[in-house]
Amino acid sequence: MAELAAQGRSPEVLFWVGCAGSFDDRSKRVTRAFVKILQSLKIDFAVLGTEEACTGDPARRAGNEFLFQVQAINNIQVLNGYNIKRMVTTCPHCFNTIKNEYPQLGGNYAVEHHSTFLQRLIDEGRIVLKEGGTFKGRRITYHDSCYLGRVNGVYEAPRAVLAALDADLVEMKRSRAKGLCCGAGGAQMFKEPEPGKKDINVERTDEALNTNADTIAVACPFCMTMMRDGVKAREKESEVAVKDIAELIAERQGL
């Protein structure tokens, strides 16, 4: 972004990568897949690179309001400094915080999650997926992210994106508004679970495995980690893949 600004240009859209997308090895692959899609469509985008910082969401949900506000206000300073208007992100938590919590602190951006972004590209015919293709006969189940679905009401976009792949979509028993959390939200990602009978991600993975899908599709880096750990715990890594919707589109396009 700094380079663009130095040239006096501003991008059509800023891709907010998020901490997981930047540092977590598995999520970095999602980041790269999404970037490939953007590049293949010659979309004018930029990233903040090393100027990006945690939105503060995990700190806020763990109770540390002070730290959240420091992060938020600093980020808003940077974004406003570059006069950013439109953003897209692959992380529902970043999406929620930027969309619903930054406005109160002076950050107003039209921010989108990559599921609705991709859906629009498909609807507009910019992403063209030919009939048949490599996904014919594959079974995909979509796991709703709480902060995308229940919290922000985005249930259909990720499903529409998956439907375009021409695979069989199967629903888990608890889906959409009733979708079961992967267990990572509310900063649980960053600590061990409290004592209980079962881990939440294993409970959810079992439900996904019951659909006999060969792919569990996710739209959140934390769901990605939790579902992969769940699949590992059930020793199904060789049969069942956990993939982000962007990766599936990239794969279908041979990117």
Binding site: C19, R32, V47, C54, P58, A59, N64, L67, V70, K191
Partner: peptide, 30 residues
């Protein structure tokens, strides 16, 4: 574990212990 996460955000601007200078490395990997 949360206090450690707070500290990471405070010092590294990410909930994990990675240096902020590595934030853009994803672009050159893979």
């Amino acid at each position: 574990a949360w206090n450690a996460m707070f500290q990471n955000i405070e010092n590294n601007f990410a909930p994990w212990k990675f240096p902020p200078s590595d934030r853009f490395n994803w672009a050159n990997e893979g």
